[in-house]
Amino acid sequence: MSNAMPAFVLHTERLLLRAPTVALTAAVVDYQARNMAHFARWDPPYPADFFASAAVTERLAQGEQSFAAGSAYRYWFSLRDDPARLIGQVHLSQVARGAFQNAILGYSLDEQAQGLGLMREALRAVIAEMFGAQVRLHRIQAAVRPENQRSRAVLQALGFAQEGLSRRYLFIDGQWRDHEVYALLNPQWEHDLAP
């Protein structure tokens, strides 16, 4: 199995995806400020200073370290013709090796960029990188609230299969919320090789 690092920058037809770096602080602060109300329904509660520039810088620095260590991979993305304005992010956390070879997928997209197929495009690129020779995950898992039709449609379009329901899974928007669990298996995984 390869322990090589995934690409820091990914390109798609319309998107530029970049690994965390403190140089993205202002763009991340702007992205989060523009979308705070939009994401509130789907995100857990955050501390009061969570979106402050210093806190964002600290999380980006931690994200750089996690990316380099192979414990989590986040890509912030923008349109290729407007690289300074972030419109989304894809995050793979809890990267497990050994017999599991799994990661937990999360993502968000700017409210003004919805309905254009941009999240599917970003996820295709990131999944290809995660299932490719550099990272070589066997499985990617995602959890989504049943009422989040857009997110469910994205996962289903990419071939994720629903595996079950996790009741009262996360505390979001004032309540414990059920989540459907989806997973995508790497079709290139070599079953006869030990992880």
Rank of each mutant, 00 (worst) to 15 (best):
A84H: 10
A122R: 05
V22I: 13
D173G: 11
A113Q: 11
V135G: 09
S151Y: 03
A55C: 14
V154M: 04
Q114V: 10
P146D: 04
F77N: 02
Q175L: 09
R167W: 04
P45Q: 11
L185K: 08
A125Y: 05
A26Y: 02
A33W: 01
A52H: 14
L158S: 01
Q149R: 13
E163V: 08
Q112E: 14
A194I: 12
A23H: 06
P44Q: 07
V56Y: 01
L118N: 03
T12A: 11
D110Q: 01
Q32K: 12
G174P: 11
R41N: 06
F77T: 03
L118I: 03
E163C: 11
P187H: 00
D49Y: 06
P195H: 13
A142C: 07
E64Y: 04
E58Y: 00
F39I: 05
Q65W: 00
A143Q: 14
R59P: 11
Y46H: 15
F50T: 02
A52E: 15
T25Q: 13
R41T: 14
V144C: 06
A37W: 08
A26E: 12
S71P: 05
N3C: 02
V95D: 09
D81W: 06
Q32I: 06
Q65P: 00
A37Y: 04
E64R: 12
F131L: 06
P187Y: 00
D81N: 11
E121N: 09
L123V: 06
A72M: 09
R14H: 12
A122G: 10
L158N: 01
S2C: 06
Y169H: 15
G115H: 02
E129R: 03
A26M: 03
R80D: 08
R136Q: 14
D82W: 02
D178E: 04
R124I: 09
R168M: 07
L24N: 05
E58R: 15
D81I: 01
S166C: 11
D173T: 02
S78T: 02
A19C: 05
A128H: 13
R120C: 13
V154C: 07
R97L: 09
G164M: 11
A143D: 12
L92I: 13
L60N: 03
Q162H: 07
S78D: 06
H191F: 07
A125G: 01
M36Q: 15
